[in-house]
Design a binder for these strands. Structure first.
Lengths: 351, 351
DNA sequence: GATTAGCACTCGCTATCTTTGAGTGCTAAC
DNA sequence: GTTAGCACTCAAAGATAGCGAGTGCTAATC
């Protein structure tokens, strides 16, 4: 059984319809709405084949078909790139550009605006991350005693950046344990770039270790992460959060809650975004390692500033999304930003 | 018919019960749960009186009673202050303080943390506004032509602060119209402090004016507002947004959506918070002028930095909230912040 | 006169049952 | 290989009944 032209055409029609309506699509509907030149019965046979091949599923016996993740993957990889790409019209492009440059000001505002535009067009939740300056690597980390409940966390980078943060601990410590902690952390993080360090999961290595040390580490890590983030100077913007209320997939309160909670854990989310590869990346459903995202798709793309610093822009939503339109819009936006903030300096004007 | 002791006691019990359960409370439940020393029938009679007096309502004939806004007002004004105040236990205080100072760092982080703690304890959505530097008044506003679609918005304050922002307009303008606009804006805003200016609704005055001018103003105002906000340097933090999913009042998707949308319009919300009076302020339901807030209550308090700069901390939620606990927690938090950041300089330590 | 017991009545919820209709899979004819 | 026809499935929507928490009134009681 091969994926002949007709099967592909039917699959595409199903994806298109389902993406718009969020309702399982049946053979009759399909033959009426789309000019496929065959009867519902034939479509049914083909659908049955497509289901056997893993491209469609069946919520229950008497319901229409729903595209599987595999179908979306196929759509993104094959159908979309092979001529099926969504082309933004001149009007759409102009509208986006005019909104993006309406108030020509600093990069941060432009990025924020880009997220805004993106969520507006896609009706999904969008996010944007400001560029990270990331050549710098860590030289050493030192945790120093101040008084019985306060320590100073000192981070020094290869280029000489220093950050000191005083922390109140709610577990006791000894000078000895701080020394070990400092050494361990230095050992673990030395030579890593800030963003690499940010995405490492180091607490685990303590977990099995001595109880006391693990607790100490747990106390310090959140602050360590936060400080790294500050040194990296990445900022995460989000827009269109309330859009989830218009998405059928989330009109179950429990699901909406989970979705919101996932996005609201900013550190976690930043981490996830920061580790994604550069360029236009689409991850569908279970392709997302994170278990809270197994029912979501993510589309991200990177933009460049001065041809080098890399920031990210993307959307998150249910696996049922308009991949073609979304990727086109994101690409258009990131291209625009990259162009505007080229080495020449872009159009930065302020104060 | 007067509000005698027994009526007050019953009312208090109803409020207490309803705040916890979100269910209308009936006479039998009341007499069983609370030791009021009278039979359900008597309670019914009193409840009927209380309803006549406007302190209770009736969702429908065969349901229990629900406190009205008037009841909450009475509770906040009379019952709570008259000995019924919620006293934080030593443990609660310690727990709050330790979380607040866990990582002793800059003010902004402390404020953010305060909002976090607040939403955690109250299970509501909390917000915090960083202090505003607000002695400075505006001297003049100038809108200058650059090219046919770009202008520069220049704002100058009495102390000499200057802000220039380049804007792309999507309506045509003449040099003349810019001059008029500049003059009008200067006339309207001169002598106002930044935060006063921020909360004025100036577009209205153009509305009736010449169409073209009004459109021009509409193009410029959002940027004007944003720039003012930057000059004021206020930042709005929010926490516990996903808490709304656990609040019975919002387990209707439509209502949750409206709530979210209201909070997500950051400029509007900032404006509302910035204009609130200083000190501990409770506004209940329709007492909030804003029509999107007519089913919400807001509790805010102010904290001081160096005894002068004023920031705000607060929660927003359904009118059914634990006013006693919430006010106590907010006061405790703002007191702590004000103390920590006294003239002596607090405990700021960084870099 | 205030309090309470008793009772009829109200009405939103929940559970159960039925109906409806979109959709499938199979078979037999084209 | 395609299609018409038909029996079958099953979620969703509507209808109905019963439950139970709660009220308001009346008459008896303290």
């Amino acid at each position: 059984m091969s994926l002949n032209e007709r099967k592909l055409k039917i699959l595409q029609a199903i994806i298109g319809d389902f993406v718009r309506t969020a309702e399982p699509v049946g053979s009759r509907t399909l033959s009426k709405k789309y000019d496929l030149g065959v009867s519902p019965a034939t479509i049914r046979n083909e659908m049955s084949d497509l289901e056997d091949m893993g491209f469609l599923t069946h919520p229950h016996t008497s319901a229409g078909r729903v595209p599987s993740e595999k179908a979306y993957r196929l759509y993104v990889d094959e159908i979309m790139s092979g001529g099926g790409k969504y082309h933004l019209s001149k009007d759409e492009k102009d509208s986006i550009a005019s909104k993006l440059y309406d108030n020509v000001s600093e990069l941060d505002k432009t990025i924020e605006r880009a997220a805004e535009i993106l969520s507006e067009i896609t009706n999904l939740t969008s996010f944007a991350m400001t560029p990270k300056q990331d050549e710098d690597t860590l030289r050493f980390i030192n945790v120093l005693p101040v008084d019985e409940s306060t320590v100073v966390l000192m981070i020094v980078s290869e280029t000489g950046k220093v950050s000191n943060t005083a922390l109140k601990l709610n577990v006791p410590y000894t000078d000895e344990s701080l020394k070990i902690l400092s050494k361990t952390m230095t050992f673990n993080y030395q030579g890593k770039t800030l963003s690499q360090a940010l995405t490492m999961d180091i607490i685990e290595s303590f977990e099995s270790d001595i109880e006391a040390m693990s607790r100490l580490a747990k106390n310090i890590m959140p602050n360590f992460m936060r400080t790294l983030e500050e040194m990296l100077n990445v900022r995460l913007y989000m827009d269109g959060l309330s859009n989830i209320f218009s998405i059928p997939e989330y009109n179950d309160l429990g699901k909406a809650k989970l979705f919101m909670e996932m996005l609201n854990k900013k550190e976690d989310f930043t981490k996830k975004i920061i580790t994604r590869e550069d360029g236009l990346i689409v991850t569908i459903g279970t392709e997302n390692a994170d278990e809270n995202m197994r029912e979501c798709s993510l589309v991200t793309a990177t933009y460049h500033v001065d041809g080098k610093l890399v920031g990210k822009l993307g959307v998150i939503g249910p696996t049922r999304m308009k991949y073609d339109q979304i990727t086109s819009v994101i690409e258009y936006l990131t291209d625009n930003i990259s162009n505007a903030y080229k080495l020449t300096g872009g159009e930065k004007e302020d104060d």
